[in-house]
Design a protein around this nucleic acid. Structure first.
Length: 228
DNA sequence: AACGAGGGCAACCGCAATAGA
DNA sequence: ATCTATTGCGGTTGCCCTCGT
């Protein structure tokens, strides 16, 4: 199937937005609301592609955006959520009011990655760059017999009542006395969050599978269990 | 003061997901 | 159920600014 271009490329501006373009976009959305991005540029009198308008509005113009430096709490929250969700920037952004996925993605790539590396932590897997530490401290990524099915008991999961996403959870491997907690500081109060108990069965991938794949599988299983 | 390197970030691109006809 | 249009997401690019030499 041949996809049609999202806009007439010959007649659209590219690059940095001017003050006048910003004002036009804000004025139009204030009057008519956002959405229907494809027809918006023409209606608003902008020589921009709809995607460009959407991006500009979502990332810079819409009200309620924080801008400015990230706090230490936000740093930690991003790290925790990334450990749980991976590069799901839009989901991570939904947990940080006033921050956009693009902003968080940029911040991750320019600041947090380096910060974790300086602490000897692999930003991709969130495990120690020293393999000996991983063997001792991380039961989830610890190599297992690939023929076995390992059961991980999920003691409690905090659920966001709006998104139905799990915010944090405690998991414990059956054969491990150590309780691992993915500690994410929640915006919502503890009392506001209903708790559920569930059991997770996760089939451990073969030893040559990388940690990313494993995390993804776990994350997907969580989502499946919570929604289902 | 001039220049180059590196970092930060806004914006673009391509693809996947979703909506709706 | 299928096809097409549209939206949304994540990766990448490229410009601009700052800092070191």
């Amino acid at each position: 199937m041949v996809r049609s271009p999202c806009c007439e490329k010959e007649h659209t501006n590219k690059g940095a937005w001017t003050k006048e373009e910003d004002e036009r976009l804000i004025r139009y959305i204030n009057q008519n609301g956002d959405g229907c991005w494809r027809s918006l540029p023409k209606a608003a009198g902008l020589l921009r592609c709809g995607k460009s308008c959407r991006l500009r509005w979502i990332n810079y113009l819409r009200p309620g955006l924080k801008r400015g430096n990230f706090s230490e709490d936000e740093d930690q929250l991003i790290i925790n959520l990334h450990a749980l969700l991976g590069n799901k920037w839009s989901v991570i952004a939904s947990r940080l009011p006033g921050r956009t996925d693009n902003e968080i993605k940029n911040y991750w790539n320019t600041h947090i990655k380096r910060k974790l590396l300086s602490r000897g932590i692999d930003p991709k897997t969130h495990t120690s760059l020293n393999p000996i530490n991983n063997m001792n401290n991380n039961p989830i990524t610890q190599p297992q017999n690939s023929a076995l099915m390992q059961t991980i008991n999920c003691a409690s999961v905090d659920i966001d009542p709006v998104t139905k996403n799990g915010l944090s959870c405690k998991v414990k491997c059956e054969d491990s006395p150590v309780e691992e907690s993915s500690n994410s500081s929640s915006v919502l109060s503890e009392e506001a969050l209903p708790k559920i108990n569930l059991d997770l069965s996760i089939s451990m991938p073969s030893q040559e599978a990388d940690d990313d794949k494993l995390k993804l599988e776990i994350s997907h299983k969580f989502q499946y269990q919570l929604i289902g």
